[in-house]
Protein backbone atom coordinates (compact mmCIF):
# COMPACT_ATOMS: atom_id res chain seq x y z
CA UNK A 1 0.00 0.00 0.00
CA UNK A 2 2.98 2.23 -0.19
CA UNK A 3 2.10 3.32 -3.71
CA UNK A 4 -0.19 6.25 -3.94
CA UNK A 5 -1.31 7.03 -7.43
CA UNK A 6 -1.08 10.75 -7.21
CA UNK A 7 -1.96 12.07 -10.63
CA UNK A 8 -5.51 10.94 -11.24
CA UNK A 9 -6.50 14.59 -11.38
CA UNK A 10 -3.13 15.63 -12.74
CA UNK A 11 -3.09 18.63 -10.48
CA UNK A 12 -0.27 20.03 -8.45
CA UNK A 13 -0.21 21.28 -4.91
CA UNK A 14 -2.13 24.36 -5.91
CA UNK A 15 -4.86 22.52 -7.74
CA UNK A 16 -3.57 23.57 -11.15
CA UNK A 17 -3.04 21.19 -13.99
CA UNK A 18 0.62 20.36 -14.31
CA UNK A 19 2.89 19.10 -17.06
CA UNK A 20 2.00 15.48 -17.73
CA UNK A 21 5.64 14.38 -17.51
CA UNK A 22 5.73 14.75 -13.75
CA UNK A 23 2.18 13.67 -13.11
CA UNK A 24 2.44 10.55 -15.21
CA UNK A 25 4.57 8.62 -12.76
CA UNK A 26 3.18 7.30 -9.51
CA UNK A 27 4.88 8.43 -6.32
CA UNK A 28 6.60 5.56 -4.54
CA UNK A 29 5.79 7.02 -1.18
CA UNK A 30 8.18 6.26 1.64
CA UNK A 31 6.73 6.57 5.09
CA UNK A 32 9.64 5.91 7.41
CA UNK A 33 12.03 8.81 7.81
CA UNK A 34 15.54 8.30 6.46
CA UNK A 35 17.13 11.66 7.16
CA UNK A 36 19.11 13.00 10.08
CA UNK A 37 17.68 14.97 12.95
CA UNK A 38 19.08 18.45 13.52
CA UNK A 39 19.40 20.21 16.86
CA UNK A 40 20.34 23.88 17.08
CA UNK A 41 21.04 25.34 20.49
CA UNK A 42 21.51 29.06 20.84
CA UNK A 43 23.00 29.41 17.36
CA UNK A 44 24.34 32.89 16.71
CA UNK A 45 26.18 34.34 13.78
CA UNK A 46 27.75 37.75 13.46
CA UNK A 47 29.70 39.27 10.62
CA UNK A 48 31.98 41.69 12.41
CA UNK A 49 29.68 43.92 14.45
CA UNK A 50 26.59 42.97 12.51
CA UNK A 51 24.70 40.24 14.27
CA UNK A 52 22.64 38.22 11.76
CA UNK A 53 21.36 35.35 13.91
CA UNK A 54 20.69 35.87 17.62
CA UNK A 55 20.18 32.65 19.51
CA UNK A 56 18.28 30.16 17.38
CA UNK A 57 16.91 27.11 19.22
CA UNK A 58 15.41 24.57 16.88
CA UNK A 59 14.77 20.84 16.82
CA UNK A 60 14.18 19.31 13.42
CA UNK A 61 13.10 15.65 13.53
CA UNK A 62 14.54 13.30 10.94
CA UNK A 63 12.71 13.38 7.63
CA UNK A 64 10.86 16.61 8.29
CA UNK A 65 10.23 19.12 5.49
CA UNK A 66 10.97 22.43 7.17
CA UNK A 67 10.45 25.74 5.41
CA UNK A 68 12.05 28.97 6.59
CA UNK A 69 10.44 32.20 5.49
CA UNK A 70 11.18 35.82 6.25
CA UNK A 71 12.03 39.15 4.74
CA UNK A 72 15.30 39.44 2.85
CA UNK A 73 18.10 40.02 5.31
CA UNK A 74 16.30 38.19 8.12
CA UNK A 75 19.10 35.62 8.30
CA UNK A 76 17.38 32.67 6.63
CA UNK A 77 20.10 32.08 4.04
CA UNK A 78 22.78 32.54 6.70
CA UNK A 79 21.14 29.84 8.81
CA UNK A 80 21.16 27.50 5.83
CA UNK A 81 24.82 28.23 5.09
CA UNK A 82 25.68 27.39 8.69
CA UNK A 83 23.84 24.09 8.45
CA UNK A 84 25.67 22.93 5.31
CA UNK A 85 29.00 24.06 6.69
CA UNK A 86 29.61 26.99 4.36
CA UNK A 87 30.06 29.28 7.38
CA UNK A 88 31.00 28.78 11.02
CA UNK A 89 28.74 29.68 13.94
CA UNK A 90 29.94 32.47 16.24
CA UNK A 91 27.85 31.14 19.13
CA UNK A 92 25.85 28.09 20.16
CA UNK A 93 26.07 24.73 18.46
CA UNK A 94 24.61 22.61 15.67
CA UNK A 95 24.27 18.85 16.10
CA UNK A 96 23.12 16.21 13.62
CA UNK A 97 21.53 13.17 15.20
CA UNK A 98 20.95 9.63 13.91
CA UNK A 99 17.96 7.41 14.81
CA UNK A 100 19.39 6.52 18.21
CA UNK A 101 19.94 10.16 19.04
CA UNK A 102 23.72 9.96 18.81
CA UNK A 103 25.66 12.67 17.02
CA UNK A 104 26.55 11.88 13.43
CA UNK A 105 28.01 13.46 10.34
CA UNK A 106 25.27 14.13 7.82
CA UNK A 107 25.51 13.52 4.11
CA UNK A 108 24.33 17.05 3.36
CA UNK A 109 23.66 18.53 -0.07
CA UNK A 110 22.60 21.98 -1.15
CA UNK A 111 20.64 23.38 -4.07
CA UNK A 112 21.37 27.06 -4.66
CA UNK A 113 19.13 29.69 -6.14
CA UNK A 114 21.27 29.59 -9.28
CA UNK A 115 21.85 26.16 -10.84
CA UNK A 116 25.67 26.63 -10.60
CA UNK A 117 26.33 23.98 -13.22
CA UNK A 118 29.80 23.66 -14.71
CA UNK A 119 29.26 25.01 -18.22
CA UNK A 120 32.21 22.97 -19.56
CA UNK A 121 30.82 19.66 -18.40
CA UNK A 122 27.89 17.74 -19.84
CA UNK A 123 24.65 17.39 -17.93
CA UNK A 124 25.68 13.88 -16.90
CA UNK A 125 29.12 15.09 -15.82
CA UNK A 126 27.53 17.80 -13.72
CA UNK A 127 25.32 15.30 -11.94
CA UNK A 128 28.38 13.10 -11.32
CA UNK A 129 29.94 16.02 -9.39
CA UNK A 130 27.49 15.09 -6.63
CA UNK A 131 29.12 11.68 -6.29
CA UNK A 132 32.65 12.89 -5.67
CA UNK A 133 35.41 10.53 -6.78
CA UNK A 134 34.72 6.83 -7.08
CA UNK A 135 34.02 3.76 -9.16
CA UNK A 136 33.20 4.42 -12.77
CA UNK A 137 30.66 1.76 -13.62
CA UNK A 138 28.46 2.48 -10.66
CA UNK A 139 28.66 6.21 -11.35
CA UNK A 140 26.99 5.94 -14.73
CA UNK A 141 24.11 3.93 -13.30
CA UNK A 142 23.57 6.34 -10.43
CA UNK A 143 23.78 9.42 -12.63
CA UNK A 144 21.24 7.90 -15.00
CA UNK A 145 18.96 7.09 -12.10
CA UNK A 146 19.20 10.63 -10.72
CA UNK A 147 18.53 12.15 -14.14
CA UNK A 148 15.60 9.82 -14.53
CA UNK A 149 14.23 11.14 -11.27
CA UNK A 150 14.11 14.66 -12.69
CA UNK A 151 13.03 13.36 -16.13
CA UNK A 152 16.10 14.52 -18.02
CA UNK A 153 17.71 11.20 -18.95
CA UNK A 154 17.80 12.04 -22.65
CA UNK A 155 19.77 15.25 -21.97
CA UNK A 156 22.72 13.49 -20.28
CA UNK A 157 25.19 14.36 -23.06
CA UNK A 158 23.94 17.91 -23.63
CA UNK A 159 25.81 21.07 -22.56
CA UNK A 160 24.07 23.00 -19.75
CA UNK A 161 23.96 26.10 -21.99
CA UNK A 162 21.46 24.26 -24.20
CA UNK A 163 18.93 23.76 -21.40
CA UNK A 164 16.15 26.03 -20.21
CA UNK A 165 16.28 27.63 -16.78
CA UNK A 166 13.93 25.09 -15.29
CA UNK A 167 15.84 22.18 -16.80
CA UNK A 168 19.11 23.52 -15.40
CA UNK A 169 17.62 23.70 -11.94
CA UNK A 170 16.40 20.13 -12.36
CA UNK A 171 19.98 19.09 -13.19
CA UNK A 172 21.12 20.89 -10.03
CA UNK A 173 18.50 18.94 -8.09
CA UNK A 174 19.69 15.67 -9.62
CA UNK A 175 23.29 16.58 -8.67
CA UNK A 176 22.15 17.06 -5.08
CA UNK A 177 20.11 13.84 -5.03
CA UNK A 178 22.58 11.52 -6.72
CA UNK A 179 24.49 10.78 -3.52
CA UNK A 180 21.25 9.96 -1.65
CA UNK A 181 21.65 12.73 0.94
CA UNK A 182 20.03 12.49 4.35
CA UNK A 183 19.87 16.27 4.59
CA UNK A 184 18.98 18.50 1.66
CA UNK A 185 19.16 22.27 1.96
CA UNK A 186 17.40 24.34 -0.69
CA UNK A 187 18.25 28.03 -0.79
CA UNK A 188 15.37 29.68 -2.66
CA UNK A 189 15.85 27.08 -5.38
CA UNK A 190 12.87 28.23 -7.41
CA UNK A 191 13.36 31.95 -6.90
CA UNK A 192 14.82 32.57 -10.33
CA UNK A 193 12.24 30.58 -12.28
CA UNK A 194 9.11 31.80 -14.03
CA UNK A 195 5.76 31.19 -12.37
CA UNK A 196 4.73 28.19 -14.48
CA UNK A 197 8.08 26.44 -14.15
CA UNK A 198 7.93 27.03 -10.40
CA UNK A 199 4.71 25.07 -10.19
CA UNK A 200 6.16 22.00 -11.91
CA UNK A 201 9.36 22.29 -9.91
CA UNK A 202 7.43 22.43 -6.64
CA UNK A 203 5.67 19.19 -7.38
CA UNK A 204 9.01 17.68 -8.39
CA UNK A 205 10.64 18.71 -5.12
CA UNK A 206 7.68 17.36 -3.18
CA UNK A 207 7.78 14.11 -5.13
CA UNK A 208 11.45 13.38 -4.50
CA UNK A 209 11.08 14.26 -0.84
CA UNK A 210 8.10 11.92 -0.46
CA UNK A 211 10.05 9.16 -2.16
CA UNK A 212 13.28 9.60 -0.22
CA UNK A 213 12.25 11.21 3.08
CA UNK A 214 15.49 13.05 3.67
CA UNK A 215 15.40 15.96 6.10
CA UNK A 216 14.62 18.99 3.96
CA UNK A 217 15.32 22.61 4.74
CA UNK A 218 13.63 24.90 2.27
CA UNK A 219 14.44 28.59 2.42
CA UNK A 220 11.99 30.76 0.51
CA UNK A 221 10.44 34.20 0.51
CA UNK A 222 7.21 32.83 -0.93
CA UNK A 223 4.79 32.03 1.88
CA UNK A 224 2.37 30.18 -0.41
CA UNK A 225 5.19 27.94 -1.59
CA UNK A 226 6.24 27.21 1.99
CA UNK A 227 2.69 26.30 3.00
CA UNK A 228 2.18 24.12 -0.08
CA UNK A 229 5.35 22.07 0.49
CA UNK A 230 6.40 22.02 4.13
CA UNK A 231 5.46 20.00 7.23
CA UNK A 232 6.45 22.93 9.34
CA UNK A 233 7.12 26.59 8.65
CA UNK A 234 9.23 28.90 10.78
CA UNK A 235 9.33 32.65 10.38
CA UNK A 236 12.61 34.43 11.00
CA UNK A 237 12.80 38.12 11.80
CA UNK A 238 15.97 39.98 12.70
CA UNK A 239 17.77 36.76 13.48
CA UNK A 240 15.13 35.24 15.76
CA UNK A 241 12.36 32.70 15.29
CA UNK A 242 9.11 34.63 15.67
CA UNK A 243 6.65 31.94 14.59
CA UNK A 244 6.81 28.15 14.34
CA UNK A 245 3.77 26.39 12.84
CA UNK A 246 3.05 22.83 11.82
CA UNK A 247 1.24 22.16 8.53
CA UNK A 248 -0.28 18.70 8.66
CA UNK A 249 -2.45 18.79 5.56
CA UNK A 250 -2.50 15.76 3.34
CA UNK A 251 -0.27 15.70 0.28
CA UNK A 252 -0.43 16.64 -2.50
CA UNK A 253 -2.05 19.79 -1.24
CA UNK A 254 -4.61 21.79 -3.04
CA UNK A 255 -3.83 25.43 -3.12
CA UNK A 256 -6.33 28.07 -2.11
CA UNK A 257 -8.29 26.08 0.44
CA UNK A 258 -9.60 28.22 3.27
CA UNK A 259 -7.41 26.89 6.07
CA UNK A 260 -4.19 27.07 4.03
CA UNK A 261 -5.07 30.63 3.04
CA UNK A 262 -5.70 31.44 6.68
CA UNK A 263 -2.29 29.99 7.55
CA UNK A 264 -0.63 32.04 4.83
CA UNK A 265 -2.25 35.11 6.33
CA UNK A 266 -0.91 34.30 9.78
CA UNK A 267 2.60 33.80 8.43
CA UNK A 268 2.52 37.06 6.48
CA UNK A 269 1.31 38.88 9.56
CA UNK A 270 4.22 37.44 11.56
CA UNK A 271 6.70 38.45 8.86
CA UNK A 272 5.52 42.04 8.74
CA UNK A 273 4.78 42.38 12.45
Amino acid sequence: MSEIINPVRKTNAWGKEIEPEFAARPVRERHEARGVGIRLTGVAKAFGDVSVLRGIDLDVPAGQFLAIVGKSGCGKSTLLRLLVGLDEVTGGSIAFLDESGAETRPNARIVFQEPRLLPWDSVGGNVAVGLGEGGRAERVARVTAALNEVQLTEKAKEWPARLSGGQRQRVALARALVSRPDFLALDEPLGALDALTRITMQSLVERVWREQRFTALFVTHDVAEAVALADRVIVLDEGRIVLDVTVDHERPRERGTADLAELEGRLLKAIFA
Binding site: L86, R109, F112, E114, R116, L118, V129, G132, E133
Partner: peptide
Protein backbone atom coordinates in the same frame (compact mmCIF):
# COMPACT_ATOMS: atom_id res chain seq x y z
CA UNK B 1 33.22 32.29 -7.27
CA UNK B 2 29.77 30.70 -7.04
CA UNK B 3 31.09 27.72 -9.00
CA UNK B 4 34.12 27.45 -6.73
CA UNK B 5 31.83 27.55 -3.71
CA UNK B 6 29.65 24.87 -5.27
CA UNK B 7 32.75 22.75 -5.89
CA UNK B 8 33.83 23.07 -2.28
CA UNK B 9 30.37 22.21 -0.95
CA UNK B 10 30.41 19.14 -3.16
CA UNK B 11 33.67 18.02 -1.65
CA UNK B 12 36.21 19.21 -4.23
CA UNK B 13 39.56 20.53 -3.17
CA UNK B 14 43.11 20.85 -4.43
CA UNK B 15 43.78 19.15 -7.73
CA UNK B 16 40.16 18.11 -8.35
CA UNK B 17 38.90 21.65 -7.86
CA UNK B 18 41.61 22.90 -10.21
CA UNK B 19 40.95 20.31 -12.89
CA UNK B 20 37.17 20.49 -12.79
CA UNK B 21 36.47 24.15 -12.06
Amino acid sequence: PQLIEMGRVYGMSGWTLFRKV
